[in-house]
Simulated scan of single mutants.
Amino acid sequence: MGHDIVRLHHVGHIVEDMAQAITLYERLGFRVPPPSCPAIPRHEGGEPEPFGTGNTHADFPHSFLELVAWIQDGATDRLPDDTRIVPLQAPAEVLPELVERIRETSANVAERLEAFQGLHILMFSSPDIRSAAARLSDAGVRHGGVNTVRRPSDTSDGVTTVRYLEIDDAPDAGPGAVTEGRVGVVAELDPDIQRAGLLDHPNGAVDLVDCVLCVADTELVATERRYEARLGRTARQDGPARVFELDDAALALVPASRLDELLPGERPAALPAFVACTVAVRDLDRTEALLRRNGLPVRTTPSGDLFVPAEAALGAAIAFRQAGIGDTART
């Protein structure tokens, strides 16, 4: 029987200045389109208004990196002038609940940004999100249920449907959040939609393959148990980290006292925190040359990955790994 969570869907990098973040990601070698800002009627029959967060993606065939900026009371001053306003579509009977969920998520983003810029969002990908939701409930993992939103797209019918759930099983976190940020599950990306994106990144990136969660040493065992329930998998020891292997990616849990062994020179801005993510690239040597050409500091991990430290990348270490044959074949 297959797993209902198979890979990393995306990580979210929450930033103060979207224009600055886009410039950084372009220097990192990613192609990043203009950001979009959702708009939704606050009540039935109302006009769509900017709401929640503005975002953009560095897309890959099966995953993406997300840049997120908070929109305060409909203001878009944190977003570039070329930001696209995108009305969301939802049935009238679910609109109030959807608005409330977005409001809760937005409040969580604002709270996280106040703490520090960096990775605060981790979403996993599921081929059967309703089965995943049922398993989570059976395992005692509290979540908000499967939400469905429709938004304009470049597909034949002009609309794409997104189904997702947010986990909120941490006792000291609010709805739609856990202690380390926003964590959830999203239905797998539509390959046709992904192929329409900007996939030819100058750095050769082809997939999101790893995320690192740093926790207090005393919280490592409890955190591992929570993720065992969330992922339906067990972790293995790999150097300083406890690693959950997915089908095409991994989540690494590392105690704060050993983070330097995994990512030399890195220090968490808070605990717990997602401190790094890794993308697979076609040619690691060419990626390194591009990073150095663009004036970015580059460090090497004990396993041979390259990474730009968090202090140079708006609070998140961005790592690069040589893609394997399977990684490049999927592009």
Rank of each mutant, 00 (worst) to 15 (best):
A273E: 11
A273H: 10
A273Y: 04
F274G: 13
F274E: 09
F274T: 04
F274D: 11
V275F: 02
V275W: 00
V275L: 04
V275Q: 05
V275D: 03
A276H: 12
A276D: 04
A276E: 04
A276N: 10
C277D: 15
C277Y: 15
C277E: 14
C277W: 14
T278C: 09
T278L: 09
T278D: 02
T278H: 06
T278Y: 09
V279C: 10
V279Q: 14
V279M: 08
V279S: 14
A280F: 07
V281K: 13
V281W: 08
R282P: 04
D283V: 07
L284W: 01
L284S: 05
L284G: 08
L284P: 04
L284M: 01
D285G: 14
R286P: 01
R286W: 02
T287G: 08
T287P: 11
T287H: 08
T287D: 03
E288V: 10
E288N: 09
E288F: 01
E288R: 15
E288G: 13
A289S: 12
A289N: 09
A289K: 13
L290Y: 00
L290R: 01
L291T: 00
L291M: 02
L291Q: 03
L291F: 07
L291R: 06
R292K: 01
R292W: 02
R293V: 12
N294P: 02
N294Y: 00
G295T: 07
G295S: 03
G295R: 03
G295N: 05
G295E: 00
L296D: 01
L296W: 06
L296N: 08
L296K: 05
P297T: 02
P297H: 01
P297R: 04
P297G: 01
P297N: 00
V298C: 10
V298F: 13
V298A: 15
R299L: 10
R299H: 07
T300Q: 13
T300F: 12
T300H: 15
T300R: 15
T301V: 00
T301I: 05
T301H: 11
P302T: 13
P302G: 14
P302Y: 11
P302L: 13
